[in-house]
C-alpha cells in the first residue's frame, strides 16, 4: 500500500517544489492520487461506469494523460479529463500514475 521513495526516480525533471514536497511527505503520491479516487474509486478500484486505474502500468496511464493533454483524446473520448489534467504537472502525474500502478488490480478489469 505504501509508496516508498522509489518514486523519486520518476521525478527526473520534476519541479524542485515537488521533490521538496516528496522529501517532506512520504505519502505525497498517495495524497495526490486521492483526488482521483472520488471518481475512479479508492486506490483506483472503481465502481461501474468509471475506469479502474489500479494495477495499470504507469506508462499506459501516462500515455493516456498525454493524449488528454494534447487533445488526441477529446470530445466523447475526453469530456472532462482534458480540463482536469491541465491542473497537474507531468511530474505530479507521474507520481500519481506510479501510485496506481502499484495497487492490486480489480479482478476482470483491464
Amino acid at each position: 500500500m505504501r509508496l516508498f521513495v522509489t518514486g523519486l526516480a520518476l521525478c527526473v525533471g520534476a519541479h524542485a517544489a515537488l521533490a521538496q514536497a516528496q522529501a517532506q511527505d512520504a505519502n505525497l503520491a498517495r495524497n495526490l492520487a486521492a483526488a482521483c479516487f472520488s471518481c475512479h474509486g479508492t486506490d483506483g478500484h472503481a465502481q461501474s461506469g468509471m475506469a479502474s486505474l489500479a494495477g495499470r502500468p504507469q506508462a499506459e496511464i501516462m500515455r493516456i494523460i498525454g493524449e488528454f493533454r494534447s487533445g488526441a483524446r477529446s470530445g466523447e473520448q475526453g469530456t472532462l479529463m482534458p480540463q482536469l489534467v491541465k491542473g497537474y504537472t507531468d511530474a505530479q502525474m507521474a507520481l500519481i500514475a506510479d501510485y496506481f500502478s502499484r495497487q492490486k488490480p480489480v479482478q476482470g478489469a483491464p
Binding site: A17, L18, Q20, A21, Q24, D25, N27, L28, N31, L32, A35, S38, C39, L80, L84, G87, Y88, Q92
Partner: peptide
C-alpha cells in the same frame, strides 16, 4: 511528522 506541504484538490 509534518503534513504534505503542497496539497492539490479538484472539484467537479
Amino acid at each position: 511528522r509534518a503534513p504534505n506541504p503542497a496539497p492539490m484538490m479538484s472539484n467537479t
